[in-house]
């Protein structure tokens, strides 16, 4: 299980990274997260939507209602240019944290 704080911190880069592969809707995003993390990253499904809403208000993603083949209305989200820039910033930050931690956690020679 991953702690709440870390989950909260990682939602933004996670969503933006998923959306870089093309537009997508909420349910699929959640599925993808679960799939990628092997179920260790657990989101309450409902909490995804306020986050998407916020990202949209900040101008990182854009949404559009579309009717699916099954006749169901779905809101599709798409990455904006601003979102791409934001993702790049996030990526750098995460990588530097990662790099620092990896150095610290080098296997200790016996």
């Amino acid at each position: 299980m991953i702690s709440k704080a870390l989950v909260a911190a990682s939602t933004k880069p996670m969503i933006l990274s998923i959306l870089i592969g093309g537009e997508n809707y909420g349910y699929q995003i959640i599925q993808k997260v679960k799939e990628l993390s092997g179920g260790r990253l657990e989101w309450s499904d409902g909490m995804l939507y306020p986050v998407l809403h916020r990202l949209e208000k900040d101008g990182f993603i854009r949404s559009q209602w579309k009717t699916s083949d099954g006749g169901r209305l779905r809101k599709y989200y798409k990455l904006t240019d601003k979102g791409r820039e934001e993702l790049e910033k996030e990526r750098k930050q995460w990588l530097s944290v990662h790099e620092a931690l990896s150095k610290l956690w080098k296997p200790i020679p016996v």
């Binding site: 309450s44 409902g46 909490m47 939507y49 306020p50 809403h53 208000k57």
Partner: peptide, 19 residues
């Protein structure tokens, strides 16, 4: 159950909307 409770979700929306 997976969707979660209305209140915390609403609070999150509120935070974004009244920002």
């Amino acid at each position: 159950k997976e969707m979660g409770y209305a209140d915390p979700i609403g609070r999150e929306y509120h935070k974004t909307d009244t920002r």
